[in-house]
C-alpha cells in the first residue's frame, strides 16, 4: 500500500506568478496597475477601481500574528506525522493576510501581534509551503 500524498495546489493562469515566486522563496501579491491597491488571494479585478490590469509585487516580509489554530488531529493522512502543527493567520505589512505554518515557537508564547518573518519550505510534492517564524 502506498502512503497517501499531500494535496497539490492546482495552479491557474491567474495564480501562476504567485507559485513561481514562491518556488524562488519570495512571497508576491497582486497590485492593481491603475490605482495601486494590493490584494491577496489572486483575483481578476481590483475591488477599488475595477481595473483588470495588475502586476505582482514582492512583500516586505514584515508581518504579525492575527490568529491561529494548532492541529492535533489529521483530517488527511499525509499530515499525521507532522502533528501537532500550527496554522497561522498573518497580517502582512501591505494589508492583505496570508495563512501559513508557524514554527519555532511554543504554544504558550503565541499572541496576537507577534512579529513574524517567512520562508518557503518545499514539501514532498515540491509545493512551496509558506512558513512563518518569530522575527528577531
Amino acid at each position: 500500500m502506498t502512503a497517501e500524498k499531500k494535496p497539490v495546489p492546482h495552479e491557474t493562469e491567474l495564480s501562476k506568478p504567485y507559485w513561481d515566486a514562491a518556488r524562488q522563496g519570495v512571497l508576491k501579491i497582486q497590485k492593481c496597475s491603475n490605482c495601486g491597491t494590493v490584494r491577496h488571494y489572486p483575483q481578476l479585478v481590483c475591488v477599488e477601481c475595477y481595473s483588470r490590469e495588475y502586476g505582482w509585487t514582492e512583500t516586505s516580509g514584515k508581518s504579525t500574528l492575527h490568529s491561529w489554530t494548532i492541529a492535533h488531529h489529521a483530517f488527511h493522512a499525509a499530515f499525521r506525522d507532522e502533528l501537532p502543527y500550527i496554522l497561522a493567520t498573518v497580517d502582512l505589512e501591505e494589508g492583505p493576510r496570508a495563512l501559513g505554518r508557524l514554527v519555532g515557537i511554543e504554544a504558550q508564547d503565541l499572541k496576537i501581534g507577534l512579529p513574524l518573518r517567512y520562508s518557503f519550505v518545499s514539501d514532498e510534492n515540491g509545493t512551496p509551503i509558506l512558513t512563518f517564524h518569530p522575527a528577531g
Binding site: 494535496p7 495546489p9 499530515f79 507532522e82 496554522l87 495563512l99 505554518r101 514539501d123 509551503i129
Partner: peptide, 13 residues
C-alpha cells in the same frame, strides 16, 4: 488552492 496544501483540511481547522 492556498490553504489545503498547508494542512488546513477540514472546516474545524
Amino acid at each position: 488552492e492556498f490553504e489545503l496544501p498547508l494542512g488546513a483540511v477540514s472546516p474545524a481547522q
